[in-house]
Design a protein around this nucleic acid. Structure first.
Length: 490
RNA sequence: CGGGAUAUAGCGCAGCCCGGUAGCGCGCUUCGUUCGGGACGAAGAGGCCGCAGGUUCGAAUCCUGCUAUCCCGACCA
């Protein structure tokens, strides 16, 4: 806890791992690739969940819950889908343990083999569409707008806390619609929800776009995404929203009676964001002193720290801070008064900086005498002394300013690191500098693969509001309809 | 799945080459002094040295096998 973080400039990856551990966000568990999300980290995720859940409900969705286990046969009903996920599925084959005849604890009971293996869901399209089949009879049952909060398992070769873990928490929306247009509109609507959340709450600028065929979700007709740029110049896919066409309806035979009495396959979407957003949040704002949280998602927006000598002074100052804390709470601000006498104020300052608390208020004897309070903001590390009278209004506007500043700072960085290039040499140079690279591409998977192989860069997305001036492919010189965004990515 | 490394107290590590009954820092407990940026002193508690074999009078240390984790790649939200 007392050790300093490796600076970002020295080893970004190391900095990230140390930050996650030291800020008490998560730790590795004894199970490979799986993490324990610690209370402070989970509190941030709970804030994200609660805000997103509200946004989903505002857009007409309801929550439900589907099983963790999926019969193996379901997974293979949609060809592209199983192709995409088969390599990373955990499979349950037995349902009972027994005492080891040799006395070494318990072993799998070989007589308890399942007739059909169960796959631990890597995503829930199949089990959900198999259920929707029974729920949807008529156009009157549509649209069906359901979300679930769940854990999923993808047996990844290589994992990183929050960014890629074998088990992760997420939400997955699964909707059914009467027409293609409605489904596309839904997928786009949820993409907007994600983008609004990213920018409005996480203070993380994102580019909205559509994935190339190579990067598309297994079983989708179109994958929309939000892409964010991290401080080290690598891109991170922060959320996806898929237009699934009629693929799953066809695979699970989900038909509805149309308004004119016919039978038609329903149109589908699915969309999700995961605990990966925690990684995005960390890598967007944090610095060498630790985590930096946007006020809107901080479990603690303001921490109050007393500075004192002796018990009498402590009592006096804590009482004054308590009164301020109550006023802040009454104004709807999440506060913590840290009157723990076993830790010194200097230790607390460092600790709350590490944990990214946006605003720190400290009061010592001089403040008490002079009617002031020390206000320190985490984003710029600036400190000032302000009158304790009217502190609530001051803090409110400061929190808003910090929220805005974080977004502006991240947006400036994203813009500054984005390159627009027209030659292969410039393209390589831009990739090496880091950031998004806006360039022309001939639209073929072959060229995309080639570029990936040669540069490790992928097409992050074809921006929805991008530059649609035609040009020539950066690699092949073939005609290109519009610029796309390349980057090296997580 | 390839390459590299590691496994010793809650955490971070030393000890291993050269075998002799386990040590340091942080943290933890108690007491005292401190307190405007990670305090100081004193006294304590805490370890099947990853697991299983082998060599030896004796293994954290040498040998064999296994397991797990981390990092770097290929694959992915």
């Amino acid at each position: 806890m007392a050790s300093k973080l490796t600076p970002r400039g020295t080893d970004y990856s190391k900095w990230y791992n140390e930050l996650v551990a030291q800020a008490d966000l998560a730790q590795h568990s004894d199970v490979k690739g799986c993490m324990v999300i610690k209370p402070y980290g989970f509190a941030i995720w709970e804030r994200m969940q609660s805000v997103l859940d509200g946004m989903f409900k505002e857009t007409g969705h309801v929550n439900a819950y589907f099983p963790l286990f999926i019969p193996k046969s379901y997974l293979s009903k949609e060809a592209a889908h199983v192709e995409g996920f088969a390599k990373e599925c955990a499979v349950v084959t037995h349902y009972r343990l027994m005492n080891d005849p040799n006395g070494n604890g318990v072993v799998v009971d070989p007589s308890a083999k399942l007739e059909e293996e169960l796959v631990v869901r890597p995503t829930s399209e199949t089990i959900i569409w198999n259920t929707y089949k029974d729920w949807i009879q008529s156009y009157r049952d549509l649209p069906l707008l359901i979300n679930q909060w769940a854990n999923v398992v993808r047996w990844e070769m290589r994992t990183r806390l929050f960014l890629r873990t074998a088990e992760f928490l997420w939400q997955e929306g699964h909707t059914a619609h009467e027409t293609k247009e409605e489904a596309v509109e839904e997928a786009r609507r949820m993409l907007d929800v994600y983008a609004n959340f990213a920018e409005g709450w996480m203070a993380m600028p994102v580019v909205k776009g559509v994935k190339s065929v190579n990067e598309r979700f297994a079983g989708a007709e179109d994958t929309y995404c939000i892409e964010a740029m991290m401080q080290d110049g690598k891109a991170l896919q922060a959320g996806t929203s898929h237009f699934l066409g009629q693929n799953f309806a066809r695979a699970f035979d989900v038909k509805f009676a149309t308004r004119d009495g016919g039978q038609e396959l329903v149109w589908a979407t699915s969309w999700g964001v995961s605990t990966r957003l925690m990684g995005a949040l960390i890598m967007t704002h944090s610095d060498d002193a630790g985590l930096v949280l946007p006020p809107k998602l901080a479990p603690i927006e303001v921490v109050l720290v007393p500075i004192y000598k002796g018990e009498d002074q402590m009592a006096e100052i804590v009482a004054a801070l308590k009164s301020i804390a109550d006023d802040l709470k009454a104004a709807g601000i999440r506060v913590k008064l840290d009157d723990d006498d076993t830790k010194r104020s200097g230790w607390k300052f460092a600790e709350y900086e590490l944990k990214g608390v946006p605003v720190r208020l400290a009061m010592g004897p001089r403040d008490l005498a002079g009617g002031t309070i020390e206000v320190a903001r985490r984003d710029t590390k600036e400190k000032s002394y302000v009158p304790s009278e009217g502190i609530v209004a001051h803090v409110q506007s400061l929190l808003a300013e910090i929220q805005d500043n974080l977004l502006a700072r991240a947006a400036a960085r994203t813009t500054e690191t984005t390159s627009v290039v027209d030659t292969w040499d410039d393209f390589i140079a831009a990739l090496d500098r880091g950031g998004f690279v806006s360039a022309h591409w001939d639209g073929t998977s072959e060229t995309e693969d080639l570029i990936k192989k040669e540069t490790k860069a992928t097409i992050r997305c074809i921006p929805l509001d991008g530059d649609t001036t035609p040009g020539q492919c950066i690699r092949t010189g073939a005609p290109s309809a519009q610029r796309v965004l390349f980057a090296r990515a997580y």
